[in-house]
Design a binder for these strands. Sequence first.
DNA 1: TATGAATGAGTATTCATTCAT
DNA 2: TATGAATGAATACTCATTCAT
Lengths: 210, 210, 210, 210
Amino acid sequence: MARRPPTKPRKNASQARSRATVDALIEATARILVREGFEKTSTNRIAEIAGVSVGSLYQYFPSKEALVAAVIDRHNDEIMQIVRAAFVEVAEMPVEKAVRRLVTVAIEAHHIDPNLHRVLAEQIPRSGRLAEVEAFNHEVHALVRAYFESRRKEMRKIDLDMATFICVSAIEAVAHNTVLHQADMLSDKTVKVLVDETTRMVAGYLRPSA
Amino acid sequence: MARRPPTKPRKNASQARSRATVDALIEATARILVREGFEKTSTNRIAEIAGVSVGSLYQYFPSKEALVAAVIDRHNDEIMQIVRAAFVEVAEMPVEKAVRRLVTVAIEAHHIDPNLHRVLAEQIPRSGRLAEVEAFNHEVHALVRAYFESRRKEMRKIDLDMATFICVSAIEAVAHNTVLHQADMLSDKTVKVLVDETTRMVAGYLRPSA
Amino acid sequence: MARRPPTKPRKNASQARSRATVDALIEATARILVREGFEKTSTNRIAEIAGVSVGSLYQYFPSKEALVAAVIDRHNDEIMQIVRAAFVEVAEMPVEKAVRRLVTVAIEAHHIDPNLHRVLAEQIPRSGRLAEVEAFNHEVHALVRAYFESRRKEMRKIDLDMATFICVSAIEAVAHNTVLHQADMLSDKTVKVLVDETTRMVAGYLRPSA
Amino acid sequence: MARRPPTKPRKNASQARSRATVDALIEATARILVREGFEKTSTNRIAEIAGVSVGSLYQYFPSKEALVAAVIDRHNDEIMQIVRAAFVEVAEMPVEKAVRRLVTVAIEAHHIDPNLHRVLAEQIPRSGRLAEVEAFNHEVHALVRAYFESRRKEMRKIDLDMATFICVSAIEAVAHNTVLHQADMLSDKTVKVLVDETTRMVAGYLRPSA
DNA sequence: TATGAATGAGTATTCATTCAT
DNA sequence: TATGAATGAATACTCATTCAT
């Protein structure tokens, strides 16, 4: 196992000023990551953009990786907030309506900051945040599985983990590729058809055969 | 636009000795990429592992990126060979059988060298090979679409591009995530179920509703 | 057109410590240039001699060329200070006295650091300082021409630019070659004769014919 | 003393083919030196342009420096031929006419291949040809001095070495600077005035005072 | 607590030269 | 004798990190 740099923030930033500095640093990192790419994202540049000295940067983050990790965490938190809210909404819905809502939310979530999303996706393996991202995936899996479990009687007999794996993979992939090929398909109508079709595929898959 | 290093090979290496050197360099790059990650992949290290001098490396490759690009190209060629063969096989099959075969092939293709696949996936955006990989994706899309077109009468009425996009995304995602979570699901039986289920989802989606 | 490395200094180095570092780097560059020649003048060696890290070097100078350029600028400034002072002195003098003074000053100026002068002369074309050196030449030309203009009535009728070009070339060449062949002619008496003779040639050239 | 690479050609190139190869190599070196600058002048490039393999290059020249030295020698020989011929011509002329002729020849000689002249001038100190170039200068000095000696009675009383040094410096400088600033002064008329004026200065300097 | 000057190991790349074929 | 593939020491330059002020 390669030794990784530390990635935990150095203090709790209790005071408001500290908090502001930390935010500025994370924001600066995200911006440079998106606008100039990972190679150009140096700690000195981050500090400069954040309007802070490098010394201060290292007061709050023990390494460059810690900063990238913080950006990943922030982004994941934003997405998870949307996702969790969606599952609350969806809990009472029948399967097809629920799937449609979840597909829509998946696409929306991927569109929060598509460029950042793309850059982070590339950095996750090196970010020391693999565990957190896996945890994120597990939570999504668990939420879907729990919903499926609660709707078991409306669905055909099926291994719930397997079904969850396949449905999450499919929905996530459609959302992800839609972001990547954004140029090709952005009209509202196209998105609607996309949601319709994806919903049809997933809901059809779950529904008891006639 | 960030300027990229050149990635075209420098010589055609027609002679046997040259060819061996080039192969050794590509192989060494792939190995280090997998075993030590992109950051540790320095040109001097590649040359060392290939049993060749740095000078020779630069005789055949104008930059580090050119080497990574060569690895990507080689890997893509391997996969495309499998994929193209599969479509020849599948041409005469009915939809469900065809989908089953394609799902199987997708998973197999992703297993050729899963670790390399993972590392390369991360490097593609920086490799100057985006265009080639997109071409690869386009070819896959075209092959699938052509097959769908030829089986139109067995399928429901549907926008073929949309259907292709969704089916390819779904199948590719299942295969990809299967590789990522290989630890969890590797038993032959599990794989069989996985193929069955994915086939059911995709074939069901394409089939005319009862 | 060949692209050149940047030669503008990176920071203004206002603080005392910075200023000392910058001076040490310029001084070290000048020394190595003189003692070991341009080929041996590597940035790591410059930093070492300056008692500073390479990193610091690059904090203040964006390239090796920038350092050479700084040495050239410093040397030119030293010379121009002497030259400008000489023209202030000379303004009120009659032609022959003025020429004698200027010849003397030219030789003195070339003797400030003859070895450095020689090395720099070779590097100017590659230094990105051609423009500055040309500006220097233009200033000298302008000063001489202005003096000539102010003394027109003591001189024969003549194209002032042409006369300036020829006189400056001649005086400069005598001074320059004197430095190059310093071993041969350094006695005070020899120098006096040299100044007498050069003055005779130039002043004679400018004087109205009898 | 820094150790220098060897600069003597490796064989006498008795055979015609060898001679052709040697010439091609020298010519290629000169061309690259002029067209791409000293930095780009690599032995591999020279061999390529000469249409010869690097191996062959090293069969005839023991080092890169030897090639540059050969170019310098060739250029000097060309100039010396002109200069020697001029002194034969001039031997019977009276001083002013002779000076005029020599000034003209100096300018012509500097124009043989001005760009090559410039590049070589920069490389001489590093070429191991300093001695040869000094010998060249000595020969010029000797020729001028011999002429002066033969015309002593037409000239004022004067230290001949000193006079030679000053006159040669002045004429050479005018010719050299004329080449450097070629853009500014190239019309036939301008050159004529230049020759007239320089001749006036030098001849006036040598002439007994009225 | 903040600053930013200083550090130096590490990286990609070049090019004169050699030598097996 | 010619070839050109191979060599590898050397060089410019970057950037995460430290620490004196």
